[in-house]
Design a protein around this nucleic acid. Structure first.
Length: 424
RNA sequence: GGAGAGGUGGCCGAGUCGGCUGAAGGCGCUCGCCUGCUAAGCGAGUGUACGGGGAAACCUGUACCGAGGGUUCGAAUCCCUCCCUCUCCGCCA
């Protein structure tokens, strides 16, 4: 959520910055609602002040018969207050829901652009593997090794669900543990295991609601949603809290499954593990003081990249342009892993700073060292990494001519020493 | 699911037959004083949000005692609904 005071004073500028996202966002109604709100507020508060004053007077009067007129007058004032409060509530609700649908302002350093094609490649890492055979796609590799069963995943649940088997299931688990150990052990994140279902307030705090309800799985009969990412429960850990300055920065990491409807992506990535209704992810979340957020984003990105470096998977880093960043994000770096079976780079991590956008929605504040008023923290998060996509990247990059897949060295301790997955 | 207890400020904890309680008291914290260190002691201060005024310090109004309604001139205090926590029982990974 954007700051209404900022919007009040920097109307044109805000309008222009939002325009770089490419959506048509007209802020005009905001001005109207805002001034109407303040008008009503002044009126109703003056009446309440009078009511309070007179009521106190009545309270002090022993003989109530001498204040009959005041009592009947306050009766009218009270009902007038009720009307005005009702108007105010309506205007307020309208203002709030309008604010809730406005995306974040792109970061000043966010490259301008209309869409994917304008994203900027910052760097790439690793040698693309050379094969003396035609590299296969992971779905073929996984089925041939009998470690991924798309057929039965579909039977059990439906399209976009996969059954992992044997070494495939273990590899997924190994990746989760490897990532968590790296981030907690070397990058100093605190591990969290949050609920996988959350309430409406939590979904609103990080920006999924109210605008993106159609992407979420909702639990029938209870007002719970399945989380689309650990960002949601983990960022909301500190919702409605005022943190001490000394607590910052806070680094949290969490493994969770993620559930997404993928509405609107019908027919895209229908094969394989790329786009699933349920997938595993290890997430990195930070709460930082505003002046640190840019540097913290770089570090977070590096923490995510480190996973790929250790796994020796080639990747590149993209600086997403203003037209391609998400609703709540101010700036986003995507890490894209090389997939030789498909001859493309695919997103495997998305690292973003949200500035104070989520913090304002979720009321996550801290008290500055100098004391004084609480200020909003900045929140950041990134995948560290998407586990299913990491697994498929391993299958494609480490595939051998004989159909087997070599296990990256750092994962072998997590695989009981296994060095290679072969067809049984 | 059944029975009971409870939700007040950073924490603990008072709030009598509704009015003088933004909220006693204690702890904690901050600043100052004092004691050659430490402990103790003394004094002052110490919630949040949204308005209005002011360059600012600050002054001022309103709201908030789990949430939402109701009764009343007036509610933390009475009534209703919901949520959450705890205890016991049942069921259960």
């Amino acid at each position: 959520m954007l700051d209404i005071k900022y919007l009040r004073d920097n109307f044109e500028q805000a309008q222009q910055r939002l325009a770089t996202r490419g959506d048509e966002i007209d802020l005009a109604p905001l001005r109207q609602l805002d001034s109407r709100r303040r008008e009503l507020l002044g009126e109703v508060e003056a009446l309440k002040a009078e009511k309070n004053r007179v009521s106190a007077l009545i309270g002090k009067t022993k003989d109530k018969s001498t204040v009959k007129d005041e009592i009947s007058r306050m009766k009218e004032v009270s009902s007038r207050i009720k009307e005005l409060d009702e108007d105010l509530r309506r205007v307020n609700d309208e203002l709030q829901s309008f604010l809730m649908t406005i995306p974040n302002l792109p970061h000043p350093q966010c490259p301008p652009g209309g869409g994917e094609d304008d994203n900027v490649e910052l760097r790439s890492w690793g040698e693309l593997p050379q094969f003396d055979f035609e590299p296969k796609a992971h779905w073929d590799i996984g089925e041939a090794l009998d470690i991924l069963d798309f057929e039965r995943g579909g039977k059990i649940a439906g399209a976009r669900f996969t059954l992992y088997k044997g070494a495939g299931a273990r590899l997924e688990r190994a990746l989760i543990n490897f990532m968590l150990d790296l981030h907690t052990g070397e990058h100093k994140y605190v591990e969290m295991l949050p609920p996988f279902m959350v309430n409406r307030d939590t979904m609103t705090g990080t920006g999924q609601l109210p605008k993106f309800e159609h992407d979420l799985f909702h639990v029938e009969g209870m007002d719970y949603f399945l989380i689309p990412t650990a960002e949601v429960p983990v960022t909301n850990i500190h919702r409605d809290e005022i943190l001490a300055a000394e607590q910052l920065p806070l680094y949290y990491t969490a493994y969770t499954p993620c559930f997404r409807k993928e509405a609107g992506s019908h027919g895209r990535d229908t094969r394989g593990l790329i786009r699933q209704h349920q997938f595993n992810k290890v997430e990195l979340v930070k709460f930082v003081a505003p002046q640190d957020s840019d540097a913290e984003l770089e570090k977070l990105l590096d923490n995510a990249e480190e996973v790929l470096r250790r796994l020796k998977l080639p990747y590149r880093v993209m600086d997403l342009c203003s037209g391609d960043i998400g609703f709540s994000a101010a700036r986003t770096f995507d890490i894209e892993v090389w997939l030789p079976g498909q001859n493309v780079y695919r997103e495997i991590s998305s690292c973003s700073t949200f500035g104070d956008f989520q913090a304002r929605r979720a009321a996550i504040r801290y008290r500055p060292v100098e004391g004084g008023k609480p200020e909003l923290v900045h929140t950041l998060n990134g995948s560290g990494l998407a586990v299913g996509r990491t697994l498929l990247a391993i299958l494609e990059n480490y595939q051998q001519k004989d159909g087997s897949v070599v296990i990256p060295e750092v994962l072998r301790p997590y695989m009981g020493g296994m060095e290679r997955i072969t067809a049984t």
